[in-house]
Structures are given as C-alpha cells and as structure tokens.
Amino acid sequence: MLDDTDRRILRQYQTDPEMAASDLAGRAGVTGSTLARRLARLRAAGILRGVRGVIHWPSLGYEVAVSLRVTLDKTQPRAFDEFLAAAREVPEVLEIQTFLGQVDVRLKVIARDMAHYQELYRGALLTLPHIADIEALMHVAEVKGQETLPL
C-alpha cells in the first residue's frame, strides 16, 4: 500500500497543495523524478484525487448552514435513488451522506440568510421525493473542520 516515502509526500502535499514540485520534492526528501512517479502512482490508485479550492461560503454571502437529517419512506423501492437524484439538483445542497439506522440521509445546506433558507426549505427541500421525516439542525459554530489526515 503506502510506504514511508509516500506518507512523507502526502503529508507535505496536504499542508500546501500549491507548493512548487521542486519544493515538495525537497520537503519530502525525494528527487523531482521520484516525486512525479510517486504522485502519478498515487493518482492512478485513487489515493490522491486532485486539488480543489475550499471556499469560505460566508465571504460570498452565505451566512446560514443547516444540517438536515432525513428519514425516507422505505416502502417505496426506489426511494433512495429518487431522493438522492433530486437532492443533487439543489445547488445549495453541498453534501449528501447516507446512513444505516434511523436517519437515512444527511444534507448539508447553505443559504444567504434565514429568509433564503425558508424559501429553499419550502420550495426545494420539502418537495424532495419520499421524505417520511425531516429534522433541521442549525449550524452555530465549526469547532473542528480538518481535512488533513494524520500521515
């Protein structure tokens, strides 16, 4: 799987993915060609899935974040598939997670303000198919939002 060199590369890469390749190679203690070969292998294996921009949504005017816990009507054979397909179409739904247990799906939703959230809730979210129960949890503060792994 991963050896110590791969872990060093990933540890340095996740701290600053925009770092120049020569700097990354130096910090990881490998040559530039070794770095390129290792990164290509990590990408091909699906371990390193790319670089992405992390946007601070409040800076763009999205002040409200809500976690919706949804229980679906599981008497309908296609309830999950149809719900998930419809939820993907709502632009303000940032995350969709499925679970085993009482709650079937969790949606992370953002809105500009409470009026916008109410409009989304009534017009787009409550109309999603096969909802048996829905619970809204208002985001108050992010205590830990780490995306790096302890490698």
Rank of each mutant, 00 (worst) to 15 (best):
59 S>Y: 07
92 E>A: 08
48 L>D: 06
87 A>P: 14
95 E>T: 09
59 S>C: 00
93 V>Q: 10
58 P>I: 04
81 D>I: 11
72 L>T: 00
83 F>I: 00
75 T>C: 04
88 R>C: 03
80 F>M: 08
66 V>K: 05
75 T>I: 03
45 A>W: 00
70 V>S: 01
65 A>P: 09
47 I>E: 15
96 I>H: 05
82 E>D: 14
46 G>L: 00
73 D>G: 01
78 R>V: 05
79 A>Y: 05
87 A>V: 10
92 E>F: 09
45 A>M: 02
95 E>C: 07
71 T>Y: 10
74 K>R: 15
67 S>H: 13
90 V>M: 11
65 A>T: 15
70 V>Q: 02
63 E>S: 10
90 V>P: 05
87 A>K: 15
84 L>I: 14
86 A>S: 07
62 Y>V: 00
56 H>K: 07
95 E>G: 03
68 L>N: 14
61 G>Y: 05
91 P>W: 12
61 G>N: 01
89 E>C: 00
50 G>T: 06
48 L>M: 07
69 R>Q: 15
79 A>T: 15
63 E>F: 09
49 R>I: 11
53 G>H: 11
89 E>L: 10
70 V>T: 03
92 E>M: 09
46 G>C: 06
51 V>W: 04
85 A>S: 13
69 R>I: 12
95 E>K: 04
47 I>C: 08
60 L>W: 14
88 R>N: 04
59 S>Q: 12
55 I>Q: 04
52 R>G: 09
95 E>P: 02
82 E>M: 07
82 E>F: 07
85 A>P: 09
83 F>Y: 08
82 E>A: 07
95 E>Y: 06
56 H>A: 14
55 I>F: 07
64 V>M: 14
